[in-house]
């Protein structure tokens, strides 16, 4: 079988316009991550489009289904399969309301998180309309969470975001979170990626 064609997508060759867009989006994602780390929930919720969708699917490890050359989204459970989280953005505001009660004991006292967001670049978007107002974005993350004096854990993975241009900046219209591990090493997922 032939190897993949060497294209701009694999070499990273890009025009200054594309580089500028990557930087603009990265700047948006860094600021978003800071809002989560600072627990500024309402400001964070305001970055979502009302029809947004948030999901954390589960990695599939299936015999003979090795992932060489396959896009990450095909290595995870799809529609109809169990997800860690898979819901309209509106449920995220319920999750925030729960945290705000001050009685969500797994976050009381609150954990401390630091999000490292990297490898941000805009992808070719097979579903995108030419000159549309949405972009498909790849980013990697490492989220470090501590609770109490000694408890530490970390989450590593990749995200596919669909961002939409609006009059006052970018909005998150969709986010799929692909965690590296298929058995979570944590007691709960009471955080956003």
């Amino acid at each position: 079988m032939d190897g993949p064609a060497v294209t701009a997508a694999t070499t990273g060759a890009a025009t200054t316009d594309v580089v500028a867009l990557d930087l603009e989006i990265a700047r948006f994602l860094y600021r978003e991550a800071a809002l989560l780390d600072d627990r500024r929930w309402d400001d964070w919720l305001a970055l979502w489009a009302e029809d947004g969708h948030y999901s954390v699917p589960i990695r599939r490890d299936v015999e003979g289904d090795d992932s060489w050359g396959r896009p990450v989204e095909e290595c995870f459970g799809g529609p109809g399969e169990l997800h860690y989280v898979d819901e309209p953005f509106l449920v995220a505001s319920v999750r925030v309301a729960k945290l705000k009660t001050g009685k969500a004991w797994a976050e009381q006292p609150p954990s401390h998180t630091t999000r490292l967001i990297t490898n941000v670049h805009v992808l070719d978007d097979p579903d995108g309309e030419p000159d549309g107002d949405e972009v498909l974005v790849h980013s990697n993350f490492l989220v470090h969470r501590t609770r109490g004096a000694t408890h530490q854990e970390q989450f590593v993975g990749t995200r596919r975001d669909r961002l939409r241009r609006s009059d006052d900046g970018w909005r998150i219209a969709g986010r799929r979170v692909f965690l590296n591990t298929s058995v979570l090493g944590v007691a709960n997922l009471q955080l956003f990626f």
């Binding site: 169990l82 007691a187 997922l189």
Partner: peptide, 23 residues
């Protein structure tokens, strides 16, 4: 499926608190 997933499991609004107690 949706009802189970949003309430239970590691990211379930209800179940999130249980593990912490058992720890």
């Amino acid at each position: 499926h949706g009802y189970y997933q949003v309430t239970f499991g590691p990211g379930g609004l209800v179940e999130e608190e249980d593990g912490e107690n058992w720890i």
